[in-house]
Amino acid sequence: MVEKRAGRTACKILQNRQIADGIFEIVLQWPKILHRPIAGQFVNLYCSHKGRLLPRPISVCEIDEDKLHLVYAVLGKGTAEFTTFQAGGLIDLLGPFGNGFSLEGKPGRALLVSGGVGTPPMVELAKQLKARGWELDVVCGFRSQSYLVEQLSRYGTVHIATDSGTEGFSGNVIELLDHEALSGDTLFACGPGPMLKGVQTWAKAKGIPAQLSLEERMGCGFGACVGCVTKIITDNESGFIYKKVCKDGPVFPAAEVLFQ
């Protein structure tokens, strides 16, 4: 028998504020009845609007003693609705879900590479890695405006790239990795598909084992609908099988992911 879990739980909102253009941080009181999340997991947040039924999966940015920090981008009407939620109010949550990053192995030098709203999960990851004795380089790419840099700087050296060149290096994270001749014993990445594909190629060329946290449109978030799949390399006729990003992932070994 599996361990029983709490269902959809109304969580108290402690703070909900804009931290960059179209980017918000929401801090929730973490109820003790829910499992404590680990780096790389996500939670389902639900809208109040009765027409918007599907959850919005939001990755864990940081977990304190009893507070969960989430950073979300306003990408549609559901996340726009979240920005109207006030401190003191409640938000419906289910989770945490997903496998999270694997932190096993002897501490050394780790590269954390993120793009845009793939940056938030790097905060808890960096904190956990530093606590285990790892040295960190955190490479973050943004369109034009950075966020979470202060938090990340507590745990390692942060390198910023922007597409617009308004902050840090002008270019993408792969170009920045090469420009600064960064390397490491292991690599963790989270961001949009094209970036992850670039990271996969880069890490393979350097011989660095990598874990990629993937993004896909999700239905339920806990494995039942089989909506959020990604191609995983398999020894069969087609060369792949579809695995669920929400349950088998969202973190996969880079060598297993088949990008188009």
Binding site: L53, L54, E216, G219, C225, V226, C228, Y242
Partner: peptide, 30 residues
């Protein structure tokens, strides 16, 4: 969930989209 004679891969993502009061799926019986 639907069972076929042999394994079925299902359709490529995106497979899920929200609509007012519901959702549309094209999982394809994976």
């Amino acid at each position: 969930k639907g069972v076929a004679a042999t394994p079925w891969a299902g359709n490529p993502p995106p497979r899920i989209v929200e609509t007012w009061g519901g959702m549309i799926n094209s999982v394809g019986l994976q």
